[in-house]
């Protein structure tokens, strides 16, 4: 999860998020190289007394400054497309969960086996227990098994919302009348926090998302205990 004065991303918990982090670092390196080169050239031009105002027909230079940026753009585009299509892929999920946005809470539906549905409201600051996180804890967490591909269908009952969990690399718009699919695979158990990411009204800031990722055995116990 996020911590005070954080710079950069949260730690990756899903393979997709690892890819995104790699892509971010890769692109940032290229940007740093370009920026330092440009800065260096600006300094050189400002400090030099040599000015070439009558330079014409320097084909070699034109070739270089056309082809080099093209190559750089390809080096950014290819990994970007690779990650993009990897995120889109869904290979036989083992569980389907629906999450519906409401003004202003999320509700989760587990209807593969039993009709299991519950609302997930934020815990207000005055009823927090010691050590709990302000504006991030909810009364009913969304419990999911680790290491398994889970299909999450996101939709909304009223206005636009967005269901986001940064450390899993997920952000999906919740649109009324439309079902958006996203795959969720986590590499380790734990609590993962997210917040509504589309302005949805007065309490937009007060509808957090909490994922509780547990090994499959514990998930089965949890769902069995709720289904009764």
């Amino acid at each position: 999860m996020a911590y005070p004065l954080q710079l950069g991303f949260q730690d990756a918990t899903s393979p997709v998020m690892e890819e995104l982090l790699h892509f971010h670092d890769h692109t940032l390196m290229i940007i740093f190289l370009i920026s330092s080169l440009v800065l260096y050239i600006i300094m050189l031009m400002l400090t030099s007394k040599l000015v070439h105002t009558n330079m014409m027909n320097v084909q070699e230079m034109e070739m270089i400054w056309t082809i080099l940026p093209a190559i750089i753009l390809i080096l950014i585009a290819l990994p970007s497309l690779h990650t993009l299509y990897m995120m889109d892929e869904i290979n036989n999920p083992l569980l389907t969960i629906k999450t519906m946005g409401h003004q202003w809470f999320w509700s989760y539906e587990y209807t593969d086996y039993e009709d299991l549905a519950f609302d997930s409201y934020m815990i207000t600051t005055d009823s927090l227990k010691f050590g709990e996180l302000r504006l991030l804890e909810v009364d009913n967490r969304m419990v999911l098994p680790t290491d398994l591909p889970v299909r999450v269908l996101v939709s909304s009952e009223d206005v636009l919302h967005s269901w986001a969990v940064p450390s899993l690399g997920l952000k999906t718009d919740a649109i009324p009348g439309r079902l958006n699919q996203v795959t969720l695979t986590s590499m380790r158990p734990g609590l993962f926090y997210g917040q509504c990411s589309e302005i949805c009204g007065a309490n937009h800031s007060f509808m957090p998302i909490v994922l509780e990722l547990v090994p499959l055995k514990y998930f089965e116990n949890w769902s069995a205990s709720l289904a009764q």
């Binding site: 036989n92 999920p93 083992l94 569980l95 086996y113 039993e114 009709d115 439309r178 079902l179 996203v182």
Partner: peptide, 27 residues
């Protein structure tokens, strides 16, 4: 009929008719 029938069941498999993020029509 509101209760799902008994028996073994996996979650809906990938459906080549609906390969996209938008699953509204699939439902």
């Amino acid at each position: 009929i509101q209760k799902p029938p008994k028996g073994k069941w996996h979650t809906p498999p990938f459906d080549p008719r609906f390969p996209n993020q938008n699953q509204t029509r699939n439902c």
